[in-house]
Design a protein around this nucleic acid. Structure first.
Lengths: 174, 174
DNA sequence: TCAATTAATATGAATTCGCATATTTTTGCC
DNA sequence: GGCAAAAATATGCGAATTCATATTAATTGA
């Protein structure tokens, strides 16, 4: 039987984090993704690899920097993952003809097949999620998320505290 | 001047990821959080440390497992971060009187002060974000995020593909 | 056209992170 | 009461991730 101090605040609305937008975004993202990410790992892929497959399925032959930004992966990390995926035979590199600094990443046949399969499964999974929401809720949510994403893509600081003056560390001494 | 192949798809609506809920959640979360996370790091804290401070500011003396779940950090990792924060003098451990398996984490005076300051700044930053959204959009968004979070907190699989049959890896060989 | 600057990617070292599991304490059941 | 099972935390280690920087290529402008 649960002791007093065991009871978990089911929805502690009194706190800060429980209504903090950035927390809600991170928490919802984590929670909603957990299932599918587990599925991805069961297929022998890591989450970043799945993201790369998905992004390349949308548009093959992206350059490394592009792909990293789209797949939410830091550039040097992406480079290493592409190494591994190339070793697994899922992608291959080809340097851009016109600008030989650039390296474009292409799906192999196996990568394309695996990507297509996972994208299908992701679609199905998404349907299942949306089915648990209220009618129209998903559309509203997606719109708002796209809006936020668009606002903060490039940069355009929001200034939590003047970016120049990093918020004096010890506020007024008495 | 930009060459043809340079133009970046401003909003590639034709693709899968650009309208995939789990992607939008992760991308919006990343994008919206980038600024404040940078601010946190300028203060000499890592993001998980900030999350811990925020969670403890809401409710001090949480047990490790509780705190890990709330702060979106894996348990063994949280343990290590608490070690470091204790070394920095931001938190201290105290084992629970009634159940000595449990370890409760408390803010020190310094930790409480730093946490309070950052929470204030986070509130200001959140206001700045919300100000850039449409009226009422933030409320709708938060509701939807809380809804999703609530649906997927404990588990309750959504089945993307039969969890038991992990989707045969090489489909029919001709 | 050449040097300086900028852009794109890769590399190496240091750190963070997560899984599996050990350890300690409590609970449930006979 | 005592023993198996469960719960809470910590630990070790390997892999993932990041940061700073090296490398190579293109661009600029004098």
């Amino acid at each position: 039987m649960a002791k007093d101090e065991d009871r978990i605040e089911i929805d502690d609305n009194t706190g800060f984090v429980g209504d903090y937008l950035l927390y809600l975004l991170a928490a919802a993202s984590d929670a909603a993704s957990a299932d599918f990410h587990a599925h991805v790992r069961e297929q022998g892929l890591r989450v970043p690899e799945w993201r790369i497959l998905a992004c390349l399925s949308d548009e093959d032959g992206q350059m490394v920097t592009q792909l990293a930004q789209l797949a939410l992966i830091e550039q040097s990390h992406l480079t290493k993952i592409v190494d591994q995926m190339a070793a697994k035979g899922l992608v291959k590199r080809r340097s851009d003809e016109r600008d030989r600094r650039r390296v474009r990443v292409f799906l192999t046949a196996a990568g394309r097949a695996l990507g297509a399969r996972l994208v299908d499964q992701a679609r199905a999974h998404e349907h299942a999620i949306i089915a648990r929401l209220r009618p129209g809720e998903a559309a509203l949510l997606k719109d708002a998320l796209k809006h936020i994403h668009a606002l903060y893509r490039a940069g355009s600081r929001v200034s939590a505290a003047p970016a120049a003056a990093p918020v004096e560390l010890e506020a007024r001494p008495t």
